[in-house]
């Protein structure tokens, strides 16, 4: 009779290797979890304090003679930030409304409009601005830093920041005239913008 009794010492993975492997796996899972969490986050939400940022401005579209926009310089004012691109057709629908709204508030000096040109080429961006007669400050989102700060999901998107630097309203999509079932204009795009800005001025 034979006996299958294995008395050899257990030859597994060394303890130090096991610790490293498990630490690595946990770290990897943490990175994946953070990435997933970030990707599932929507845009910044109303109530969020917006971090200060800078944006270079196109020549001819400077603000108060400055070739760079700094959010920190505009505390005490309502700031309207519109993300757009020349290749974006819905952006064209609201371009005139934004410009008209800017013209309404420009004399008061209490509201600042800023156009952020998202992943665009400068010649096309300039042609777009000229085509729609845009006069408010505009600049390219170099390195997509500003759009990442706002975590935009597309263009156009418009963000309304109050005098304290807190985000108060997010418009996803263009400001276009609202019509009823009969095709009558219920509220035009400019009025929609006014409805958002006016309470922030009080």
């Amino acid at each position: 009779m034979t006996e299958n009794i294995n008395t050899a010492p257990h030859r597994g993975v060394p303890l130090w290797a096991q610790i490293i492997i498990w630490a690595f796996l946990v770290g990897l899972l943490a990175i994946v979890a953070i990435g997933l969490n970030r990707s599932q986050q929507g845009t910044v939400q109303p109530g969020d304090k917006i971090k200060d940022f800078s944006l270079p401005l196109f020549s001819g579209y400077e603000l108060n003679g400055k070739s760079q926009f700094d959010l920190a310089d505009h505390r005490g004012k309502v700031v309207v930030i519109n993300f757009w691109a020349s290749w974006c057709k819905p952006c064209e629908q609201e371009a005139a409304n934004l410009e008209n709204a800017w013209k309404l508030y420009e004399p008061s000096g209490e509201v600042v409009f800023l156009g952020v040109d998202y992943v665009d080429t400068e010649p096309e961006a300039r042609a777009y601005l000229k085509k729609f007669g845009i006069t408010f400050a505009n600049g390219p989102d170099v390195g997509t830093k500003v759009s990442q700060l706002f975590r935009i999901k597309g263009v156009p998107e418009t963000y309304f920041i109050d005098k304290d630097g807190v985000l108060r309203y997010v418009q996803i999509g263009p400001f276009v005239d609202k019509v009823d079932s009969q095709g009558n204009v219920v509220m035009d795009g400019v009025s929609q913008i006014q409805v958002i800005i006016d309470p922030l001025l009080k």
Partner: peptide
């Protein structure tokens, strides 16, 4: 690389006949 090393070690451990196992006593 680490996976290959582990697999190699595991396969060697499984296929190497144990000197103490199944020995007539």
């Amino acid at each position: 690389l680490a996976g290959a090393i582990l697999l190699f070690r595991a396969l060697r451990a499984w296929t190497k006949p144990s000197t103490t196992a199944a020995a007539p006593r």
